[in-house]
Simulated assay, not measured.
Amino acid sequence: MPKPISAARRTALAGLLTATSLVLALSGCATYDVTAPADARAEAPAAEVRAKDTALAAAQDGKAPRGTDGDGADCRKAKCVALTFDAGPSENTGRLLDILKKEKVHASFFLLGENHVEKRPAAVKRIDAEGHELANHTWSHQILTDIPPAAAEREMSRLQEAVRKITGKTPRLMRPPQGRTDEQVSDISKRLGLAQVLWSVTAKDYRTNDSALITERVLDQTERDGIILLHDIYRGTVPAVPGILKELKKRGYTIVTVSQLLSPAKPQPGMVYRP
Rank of each mutant, 00 (worst) to 15 (best):
T138G: 04
L111N: 11
V185H: 12
P149W: 07
Q184P: 03
E183S: 13
P148F: 03
Q184E: 10
K102F: 01
T170F: 09
Q184Y: 01
L194H: 00
D146H: 11
E118T: 12
A152V: 04
A162Q: 04
P171G: 00
G168H: 07
N115Q: 13
R158G: 09
G168A: 08
R175L: 03
H132F: 05
M156I: 05
A152S: 09
I166F: 10
D187M: 10
R126A: 04
E183M: 03
K119L: 13
D187G: 15
G193T: 04
T167A: 09
S186Q: 14
H137M: 08
V163G: 09
G193V: 00
H141V: 02
S157G: 12
R172K: 13
D187H: 08
E153D: 06
P177I: 06
K102G: 13
T181Y: 11
S157D: 14
N115F: 09
L100F: 02
T170G: 13
P121S: 10
V163W: 08
I143E: 08
T138W: 03
H137S: 11
A129S: 14
L112Y: 02
E118A: 12
G113C: 08
V105C: 09
W139G: 07
R126G: 04
L100E: 05
R126Y: 04
L173N: 01
T145P: 03
T138P: 10
E153R: 11
G113L: 06
G179H: 11
V105W: 03
Q184H: 05
D146G: 11
K125T: 12
E114F: 06
E130C: 02
S108T: 15
A122Q: 13
A107F: 01
A162D: 04
Q178Y: 09
E103N: 13
R126E: 15
P176F: 06
K165W: 06
P171W: 00
K101A: 15
Q142H: 12
V105K: 06
S108I: 01
H106D: 15
H137L: 09
V124M: 06
V185G: 08
R172I: 11
K165T: 13
D146R: 15
L111I: 02
M174T: 08
E161M: 03
H116L: 06
V105I: 12
A151C: 02
E133C: 07
A107I: 05
K169Y: 05
E161H: 06
K190V: 09
Q184A: 12
K119D: 14
K119R: 14
P148I: 00
A151R: 12
R154L: 08
K101H: 13
Q178P: 11
T181N: 15
R172G: 12
E153M: 07
I147P: 07
R175E: 09
A152Q: 05
L173Q: 02
K125A: 15
K190A: 15
A107T: 05
A162L: 03
R120C: 05
L134K: 11
I127Q: 03
G113D: 06
A135R: 03
R180E: 13
E118N: 13
K190D: 10
F110Y: 14
P177E: 07
A150W: 02
E155R: 10
K104D: 15
W139N: 14
M174R: 06
E130A: 08
V117I: 11
G193L: 04
G179E: 10
A129K: 11
H132N: 14
L111R: 10
R164F: 06
E161C: 01
A123E: 15
H106G: 10
L100D: 15
P171F: 00
